[in-house]
């Protein structure tokens, strides 16, 4: 808790979602989502499977379209305008459950691809940045290997580094540790905690409650496509308000 208090939250709005609804065909996945994320905030989203957590954070960088309401990221509203989408995507990094590294490129190439083609950074500079972030996630020696030659935890750390190379102002994580073996989870979480301490704005879908307690300013609980409860982690875990939250917490903390 002490650490979480150290990290400051500014009063600048990073993400503003108002009255957002989304449907897959007839299926109402996201229902009336309202949410404000301040710069420097670290938010953990949890909830049962199929509750729409992934869909929600994928809407934030427009991997999914929403049909009603407004999403404003860093002052840019997400509409069909390609320029806005490009702008938001280069500001927002995303880490996936299954890493999604590019298997035909070396680790270094994975890291430099987007800076070179999107940010138009000279190759040498891009490689220096890449090596910097690789050292930060503690695997600089793997730079010339291919993703298939790395362990799951290493791959996920590379994926984090790959996003960081774009110097994003916001990071989205979609269950970054749930495809990993227990002994690899820690190395990835450590990386994420380090990132949080540096003041990165983070939205993280995860069921790692230890992580939530250590770094989150806020925990959001979703069910049936809606935000059911949100609160500071301490209160969220010690004093849940809604029945659904209680049930969910008893299930995941129970064993």
């Amino acid at each position: 808790m002490a650490e979480a208090a150290k990290m400051q939250v500014s009063d600048e709005v990073a993400i503003q979602i108002t009255g957002m609804n989304k449907w897959y065909g007839q299926f109402h996945v996201l229902r009336d989502i309202n949410m404000t994320v301040m710069r420097g905030e670290r938010i953990v989203i949890c909830g049962p499977s199929g509750s729409g957590k992934s869909t929600l954070i994928r809407c934030i960088n427009r991997l999914e379209e929403h049909q009603q309401g407004q999403i404003i990221v860093d002052g840019t509203e997400l509409t069909n305008d390609l320029k806005n989408i490009d702008k938001v995507r280069s500001e927002v990094g995303m880490v996936f459950q299954h890493f999604n590294l590019f298997p035909h490129l070396t680790i270094l190439e994975n890291l430099t691809l987007a800076p070179i083609w999107v940010r138009k950074v000279p190759k040498k500079e891009a490689e220096e940045t890449a090596m910097y972030f690789l050292s930060k996630v503690k695997i600089p020696e793997q730079a010339h290997k291919y993703p298939g030659q790395l362990s799951g935890g290493q791959q996920q750390r590379v994926a984090i580094a790959r996003s960081l190379c774009m110097k994003p102002r916001i990071m989205l994580f979609d269950e970054p540790t749930s495809a990993l073996d227990p002994e690899m989870i820690k190395e990835v979480l450590d990386t994420m905690i380090q990132l949080a301490q540096e003041g990165m704005t983070m939205l993280c879908v995860t069921h790692e409650m230890g992580f939530a307690q250590a770094v989150a300013n806020r925990v959001i609980f979703m069910d049936q496509g809606q935000i059911v409860e949100q609160n500071a982690p301490k209160e969220f875990f010690s004093n849940p308000q809604s029945e659904r939250t209680k049930l969910f917490l008893s299930q995941i903390l129970g064993h």
């Binding site: 007839q26 404000t36 049909q67 009603q68 809606q226 059911v228 949100q230 609160n231 809604s242 939250t245």
Partner: peptide
């Protein structure tokens, strides 16, 4: 900023807007 939020009544699923149907 108010961090508390808790929903006592769940929202029912709605039909998609008319432009999204048919």
């Amino acid at each position: 900023m108010d961090q508390h939020f808790s929903r006592s009544e769940m929202l029912p699923p709605l039909a998609p807007p008319i432009t999204e149907r048919g």
